[in-house]
Amino acid sequence: MNAKDVRKVIVACDAGMGSSVMLAATLRKQLKGLPVEVEHTPVDAIPADADVVLTHAGLAARARAAAPGKLVIPFQIFLGDPAVTRLVDTLKKGGDLGA
């Protein structure tokens, strides 16, 4: 998927209550000015129009099962995870995001 085609990024966690809320807030700020929406949802309720799904590594399998065919990017840490930083950079500068 190419960065320019991304309109909606979902941050998914198990309850959609804690960590995903925080990461979504940070991302929204970092992606300000881009035509990209950021939402947080429980991993079992990823919306059909999601382009990219960010989720904790421990939930990646569930996210892939819940949202087949979508680009799922797992992360390990909530602050400064390289996978998240890379996603933000690519969305800003353009380029390919991977499968």
Binding site: D14, A15, G18, S19, G58, L79
Partner: peptide, 16 residues
């Protein structure tokens, strides 16, 4: 199942 540690010595425990 998954630690709620978020960094900077802070954790955000919550239920499901």
């Amino acid at each position: 199942s998954i630690s709620t540690y978020v960094g900077e010595q802070v954790a955000i425990p919550h239920g499901l």
